[in-house]
Design a protein around this nucleic acid. Structure first.
Lengths: 150, 150
DNA sequence: GACCAATACTTAGCTTAGCTAAGCAAAATA
DNA sequence: TATTTTGCTTAGCTAAGCTAAGTATTGGTC
């Protein structure tokens, strides 16, 4: 009998089922959270992009697009919106005038903190209510997922 | 010192961080999967709705909206698209002429299977490549997440 | 039985977020 | 110097969500 993790073409029913459940869970999780804070205009993609800009320092639009796994035009627009809201600014690159680096403003950093807290509050509260063992489980699952997603 | 899971108003930094990571993971996971199959037109929301229709039998639009956690107009449109694609049909309710029940067609059931397989294939393959212990971990995490999401 | 409120869905019209294709300007290369 | 490549933008499309306002039906109330 072949050892289990050998099969390649069909991923195997158990893995497929797990993938399917994670997929559904992701959809519902984001739907539950979508636009938790219309006032500050911090939708999921904006929050996510702003977070990258805040934590990975000033970076080029290409790098941001790569990190966010979206195409260049999407990033162009997202950054324009964040800029319009005063959350980020752009610096010209002195060495290469094609590129444009983005950095968070003080307001951006402030709003990120407040906004992500508000946005994931429901989820965070639900997580906090779980027994410690399940919280640990979710943390380890997040590790695995982050690796999986690349 | 107070025992840990007691605090309520701020969910606590560990839970908040876990929530934040799950949030990010969900965004990136869905971005990676979005429109894996443009040919069959099976986007995530359609797949998700079709799946509910297939497995929870004929159900009213309101019930579907509830299950999918979206507002009525969104469901109206989604169902119109699925109908146009021949994946579902509508039955009038004999007792109440306001309501309209949706059921999957044979084609709908067929396409669901093929489509979801294609759509989550990347993810399923990645999951299948994990050591058994991590696959188990993800399954248990999916249990917890499904409860969490309600 | 006539009205009125509630319910189930639809329509209209907006926003956001993604895409491709095509363009422009700067840099790198031949 | 001419060409290609790179980084970003513009134009224009689609999908998926929303609210507000409509229609039709049901059911309750005087």
């Amino acid at each position: 009998m072949p050892r289990s993790p050998a099969r390649q073409s069909p991923p195997g029913p158990a893995a497929a089922r797990t993938a399917d459940r994670l997929h559904s869970a992701a959809i519902r999780l984001l739907r539950g959270l979508r636009m938790a804070d219309p006032a500050s205009g911090l939708s999921a993609p904006r929050l996510s992009a702003l977070s990258v800009i805040v934590f990975r320092g000033p970076l080029t639009l290409s790098a941001l697009a790569g990190a966010e796994q979206v195409r260049p035009p999407t990033i162009t627009r997202l950054v324009q919106e964040l800029e319009r809201a005063g959350l980020v600014t752009r610096l010209p690159d002195p060495n290469d005038r094609r590129v444009s680096r983005v950095r968070a403003t003080a307001k951006g950093r402030r709003v990120l903190q407040a906004g992500r807290t508000r946005r994931v509050r429901q989820l965070a509260t639900a997580v906090a209510a779980l027994p410690a063992a399940e919280q640990r489980l979710l943390r380890r699952a997040a590790d695995v997922l982050e690796r999986l997603i690349r």
